[in-house]
């Protein structure tokens, strides 16, 4: 297993992981600040954390409630 992990070229995929993390964190920060969401907040936490790229996108498009 460790051998497998070592084989992954971390230097190459690090930027991708960082960008994904930033997107996720931005979504979570906004979720914390925002007054109300469409649907329960805890559901959005799970979607943002576990639906990969799609989670934050879905949150920003349909989760945020304006007005």
């Amino acid at each position: 297993m460790m051998e497998e992990l070592a084989k992954i070229p971390w230097a190459v995929i690090a930027p991708l992981i960082v960008v994904q993390l930033v997107l996720m964190i931005v979504a979570l920060i906004d979720l914390r600040r925002i007054h109300t969401t469409n649907g329960p907040k805890i559901l959005w936490v799970l979607i943002i954390l576990f639906a990969n790229l799609l989670g934050p996108i879905l949150y920003f498009i349909i989760g945020r409630k304006q007005s």
């Binding site: 190459v12 991708l16 960008v19 997107l23 931005v26 790229l53 934050p56």
Partner: peptide, 21 residues
């Protein structure tokens, strides 16, 4: 204030990375 200047470019960045990788 709705983060659109940040999250939409980030999505495009991820999309741009995915195919070469």
């Amino acid at each position: 204030r709705s983060w659109k200047f940040l999250w939409i470019p980030l999505v495009f960045a991820i999309l741009g990375m995915s195919d070469p990788l």
